[in-house]
Structures are given as C-alpha cells and as structure tokens.
Design a protein around this nucleic acid. Structure first.
Lengths: 202, 202
DNA sequence: GTCTATACGTCGATAGAC
DNA sequence: GTCTATCGACGTATAGAC
C-alpha cells in the first residue's frame, strides 16, 4: 500500500498520468497549506494550480476525491516527518497526531468537512475515507491497548475496542471545541483521560 | 430566553409575522424529520413547505440561519418531551440527549453539518450557534460535576472544566463513529467513561 | 409587511474539440 | 490529455405586486 492509492481516473495507470497527477496534487497541497480552507472550490484550486477546473476532475474525478487525496497525502507526509514515539499511551498518540495536523492551516477544517460530508448520503468518496480511517485507527489502537494492558501499564478491566473508540472520539471532539474556543485544552483533557485509563489516582 | 430567539428579519416583531414564521418553521421541521438530510437546499425546502425560496430568506435571512433554527427548535422540543433525569452522571446526560436526537432522522447529520460549517470562515450563523452551544454545555456540565464531586459521587481530583469538555467531546465523537459504523457502542463507551470518572474499579 | 418573480454570479459536472 | 463551452442547480439580492 503506497502513496498512489487512487487510480479511479485520468492516467492512473501510465507513468505520464501518474506523474502529472502527483504534480497537481503537490501543488494543491501547497495551495491548501498556504491559504487555509478558504474558497476550496474546484475553480479556485485550479486557478492557483495553473490549470482549468476540468483538468482537476479529469485526474481526481470529483472535488470530494481531490479533497480526500489532499488530506490523505498531507497526513501521510506529516506522519513521516514526525513519527509517534513507540509505546506511547493511547491518548498521547492522538494528541501528537492532532498537534501535527494543527500546524498545517486549514487541515483540521478540511478533516471535519470531509467527516461531515461522510455522514450525509451520496458522498461516497468522503464516506469511504471516513469509514476506513476510523476502522483502521480503532484497530491499531485496540491492538496497542491490549499490549499496554498485558504489561500492566493500563487498567486491565476495560474493553480495548471501547477504549479505542472513546479515545479517538475524545480527540476529535476536543479538537472541534478547541477550534471554536482556544481555552479548551485538548492536550490536558487527553492527559487526564490517559491517567484515568492507567488507573492512577490523579 | 424563550423560543423566539431570532428577530433578525421578516416579521420578527409583530404577531402575524411571528406566527407565520413559526408556521413555516414547523413545516420545515416536519420536512426534515420525514426526509432526513437529503437535498436541504433552500429551493427544495421551500417547495415542500409550499412557498418560494425567497420567502424563506425573508423570514430566516439565509439558509444557514434556517438550518440553525430548525436544529434549535427540534432539540428544544425533544428536550421538553424527555427531560434528563436530575442528578444524572455527566456522560449519562450526553447519552440521553444523543439518543433523543437519534430518533429524528437527519438531525444528527444536520448537527454535524452545522458544526463543520462553524469551523470555516464566513459562516457567522453556524459559528455563533456552535460556539454558544459548546460554551453553554460546558458551563452547565462543569457546575453539575462540581456538585457530584462535593457529594463524593465523582473523583474529586479532576478539573471540572476539563471533564466537561472531555465528556461532550467523547459523546460527539462517538456519535460520529456510530453513524459510520453501527458496531461502535456510544452508550457503552460513555458508561465506561462514567465509571472511570466515578473512580470505580470496573 | 408578505411574498413572488426574476436576475446575478458561482458552483460541480460533463461533452466534445483539438 | 487538456482545453473551451455549456449545463442545471445553488444561495443571494432586489423590485414591485398585493
């Protein structure tokens, strides 16, 4: 499973098409990082990238698929730059990822836009993205939680799957509240959750 | 603070205007409850309500304000029908509210759409709605948490404000995951959180 | 004051020229 | 492979009928 995840359209198969698609995606990511989430229409992105909006649909199929590609690639890159420390607690994993994304303007908004779209009907690209992302995160985190429970660093009486869903939900929800009110302390709340999960008195 | 919150436009002041606005809002709520969140354009809603789309903007100012009005009124009504039991634990309050909203098709999607819009720039109606809602919820819940801590039914070593933000975030995030995958157990995860907050061993 | 009719600019998507 | 041209639908704004 490498970077060229989506071959749905436009030259997904041949070298020239792949290269051009990647080139456009690179520019689109740069545009997003520079401008934030303002005016993310096909035409606005196309103008900044230097093509027409029809060219974008040629390579990505739809605006939504382009947005998914931008988010996936942005997250993948920042994940490479700053890997999560091994053996980190569940909430710490989410905290590091969240703080990473926060450094890229508009990325958190883009994420929440995609998740909201996924909850409505007739948004297959966003729906697949969100469903897969949550399932993958829950799976990875459940496994890690089991290991921490085995080594006694986490309360053993908690269902790993429930804990995973809870930690992911808490991180996402706290991020939303933080965006609307910077007084909400995402990191501190997740640390508190971590201490409770560990069974510490305070 | 009663139901007639928004007097920004169209007959907000006089009996006839108020009555007509309420009448249109009633129909809009009924349309939403029946159709879910599909095609919530001004024109589609107007057609089902039986007016032109311009009439809706006359009374509500913009699509976003109409959506906020629909959500606020829907939530207010279901809250009247099924009040949260007094002295309930923090997570139980969120659980009851969430299950209430879940009975109305499209309401949870409408909520997440509004919150996502609030996170982007130039969406003042959604932004005000979401900011106020979270602030009010955190305030009410913090107060309740302090009382529970005083009576010893909640761990006394946790910051009430952090706990409130965490519980609200967990409920919202779990609801999102549940909508995408019904295997995620919103109620069970919140119950688990409640037990941890109470300091119970299991 | 209410509401319709209408028009404006923008949107995502698509067809077909080259 | 990428463009131009065009489509229908959107939210919004306004003029004026009643």
């Amino acid at each position: 499973m490498d970077a060229s995840a989506d071959t749905a359209r436009g030259g997904g198969r041949y070298p020239k098409g792949i290269a051009r698609r990647q080139e456009i995606l690179d520019k689109a990511i740069e545009v997003f990082a520079r401008r934030g989430s303002k005016k993310t229409s096909l035409r606005a992105i196309a103008q900044e990238v230097g093509v027409t909006h029809a060219a974008l649909t040629h390579y990505f199929g739809s605006l939504e698929e382009l947005l998914v590609a931008v988010y996936r690639e942005s997250e993948r890159r920042s994940g490479e730059e700053k890997p999560v420390p091994a053996g980190a607690s569940p909430a710490m994993v989410m905290r590091v990822s969240a703080e990473r994304n926060r450094d890229i303007p508009g990325l958190v908004q883009l994420y929440s836009t995609l998740v909201a779209a996924a909850l409505e009907e007739d948004h297959p690209a966003a729906q697949q993205f969100a469903t897969e992302r949550f399932a993958r995160l829950r799976g990875e985190m459940s496994e890690q939680i089991r290991e921490l429970q085995s080594s006694g660093r986490l309360r053993g009486d908690l269902d790993p799957a429930l804990v995973a869903a809870l930690v992911i939900a808490a991180s996402d929800g706290l991020q939303t509240q933080w965006l609307l009110d910077a007084d909400v302390d995402h990191g501190a709340a997740l640390e508190m959750l971590d201490r409770m999960l560990a069974g510490e008195p305070a």
